[in-house]
Design a protein around this nucleic acid. Structure first.
Lengths: 353, 353
DNA sequence: ATTTTTATTGCATAAAAATGCATAAACACG
DNA sequence: CGTGTTTATGCATTTTTATGCAATAAAAAT
């Protein structure tokens, strides 16, 4: 065995000739311990490679300095997580580390035990949810969590009468911006690809933005130009666009609810012999990395994951550390940004074709 | 306040009219407690929504049922994590959950405290490292960890005399497969883009595979066709390819050490007026998602992240739970797979150009 | 009826650090 | 010199669950 058992605060106390309580205080820089003994104790602690036992500390203090990140996914398949979520995950990892919190990461598993576990079982001080799969299921869970006094917040559309605190991109505005961009390029028959049911409030908001832009431009909203895509995958985007093409509807632009859907749609459109952006303009939503590498490169509405992860972390820690009289933490909205590349036209095509 | 303070095992004991120890045993299905009382106790626990306090339990049992995943990254920038690592992360998240372990995720931060913290401070039972930034720094750390008896293993090239246990793709074989694929397409002047210094052993192995394939085909290894790319980004790949083009060296194929580098190189090549794959074949390494969406779609060597994450998790848990006489856990290698798309030629081009 | 065996259950304590309360030492002041 | 005040430190206890050992009750054997 290459190691002797780990040093405890009692070992240090013994070696320093003080009591265990003094060691505890000294290591936390308590002014109750003289600078002299403090330094002495710290030196010994370092020498013995002493590390505070987090379990003992957390048990005593009834806190954990840990956050939990729970990712919602419908498909329990071996699929990759959607790229935007991955961007969020990395920014949350960074943000929590910066604030000296640990981060537990897991998937939400419907069949498994309740998520409140994290805080009830004292493994984390609060929970961040990424998306909410089916909205109605989420609502029920949120109610329970609020009831049990759990600290949590959610990345996802904030709906009127929403349970709990959310942070999200302004999906309505983003949808409007995307559609206006297409209109600015002179497009007349703009297709929307995405789920507009109440199960997918974010997509629905984007669709509302689409409708608003159309109305404000005095254009008619044609329900035949809306195709349901239940999940954000390029495969389903591809299939929906094929259905659109087969429907023989007249269209000259596509606004896809996500980039993944847009990428699939672009493939279908190109395979059908139409040119992007000359014949059909396409714009997506999320600004995922893969969008940079399609031909033409995909224009999109960017949700600033970096900023969002930073803010969501800060808000949750705010909720946890909030004192009685502090102002309550409120839901927040991130501004979407239009990222113009080459899939909508109107810009010099640098790649020869 | 919407909640009364959480129930403890003592509360349950009181309500069940038994001692706390009996509650503890009953909830863990100990045969020392009669089935009758066990069921009774469980019913009360459920009614009170009792959750075991993990801190108390971990303190008592001196274990945590938690793994730590530490991601190595050179650049402390706000950049995205490299896509292959993200795939690994999601598969490790899934694999740990499946085995009822929790997962702490963090970045390795050189300036910060030592990583051994995780196990020393009893926050995790073991650590998975993803990559190792600079190899020499890693070696030093690995030595310390072994010395302190920490359970850990690393995703990354296993070198002769390597510290600790590793799991990795067979980079040598992968490099050879990629190069052979290019040779099979009749390519004569094959460029290698990547770092071949000892700081990047994985890239170096891929380069060795490249050399071996060339030698076995009776071709000459031309050092002028090797360009250093220090990090895996499309930007650096783009710059390296521009340098290659400016060098006026004669080339008809590129093997890039990663897909990201390949994607950047493809862009530079196409901008210079060369056609892919007609004039230049390109192949990458990793099989990241974005490679599917380039034009032409990028051929690559796939490292099976799904499988790797599964295995690395299983191995680490094996190390942790290993009994005195169990066979020791050994380093392992994952087979690379050739993924043929359209960037090397020889296949019908479906997209019109 | 008494002893032995078996099955349950409780008591006391361990695990490691944090903290309220008590106390000792040092110092000041009348 | 005695009393009050400040500063530093220790003692005892707290947090919650798990477990070795002891005790008890019930069942079986003599």
């Amino acid at each position: 065995m290459p190691k002797t058992s780990k040093a405890t605060s009692i070992d240090i106390a013994y070696r320093a000739g003080v009591s265990q309580s003094t060691v505890s205080r000294a290591l936390r820089d308590s002014p109750l311990v003289s600078k002299e003994t403090r330094d002495h104790i710290k030196a010994i602690a370092k020498e013995l490679n002493y590390k505070i036992d987090k379990n003992a500390r957390n048990l005593r203090t009834q806190s954990t300095d840990t956050l939990a990140l729970v990712i919602f996914e419908d498909n329990g398949t071996t699929d990759l997580i959607n790229p935007f979520f991955l961007a969020m995950i990395s920014s949350v990892i960074r943000a929590t580390a910066k604030r000296n919190y640990d981060l537990l990461v897991s998937f939400h598993q419907l069949h498994q035990d309740f998520q409140g576990d994290y805080e009830d079982s004292k493994r984390a001080d609060g929970i961040i949810f990424l998306g909410y799969g089916d909205f109605l299921t989420y609502e029920r869970m949120a109610r329970d969590l609020i009831h049990s006094g759990t600290h949590f917040l959610t990345w996802g559309a904030s709906m009127p009468g929403q349970q709990g605190i959310t942070i999200s991109c302004d999906n309505l505005k983003g949808g409007q911006m995307a559609t206006e961009h297409l209109i600015r390029h002179g497009r007349k028959n703009i297709v929307f690809l995405g789920d507009i049911s109440e199960h997918a409030p974010e997509f629905r908001e984007r669709y509302r933005g689409y409708c608003r832009a159309l109305s404000q431009a005095g254009m008619i909203i044609n329900p035949k130009l809306q195709f349901k895509v239940a999940e954000s995958t390029s495969q389903l985007g591809y299939e929906a666009a094929r259905k659109l093409i087969r429907s023989r509807s007249n269209f000259d632009a596509i606004f896809a609810a996500t980039d993944l859907i847009a990428i699939g749609a672009m493939k279908a459109v190109q395979e059908a012999g139409m040119r992007v952006p000359e014949d059909v303009s396409i714009i997506g939503f999320d600004d995922i990395q893969a969008g940079m590498y399609t031909t033409p490169a995909l224009s999109s509405i960017k949700q600033n994951a970096e900023l969002a992860g930073e803010q969501i972390t800060e808000m949750l820690i705010g909720m946890i550390t909030r004192k009685e009289n502090d102002p309550p933490i409120a839901s927040r909205i991130i501004e979407p940004e239009l990222v113009i590349r080459h899939s909508c036209g109107g810009y010099t095509q640098r790649l020869k074709r």
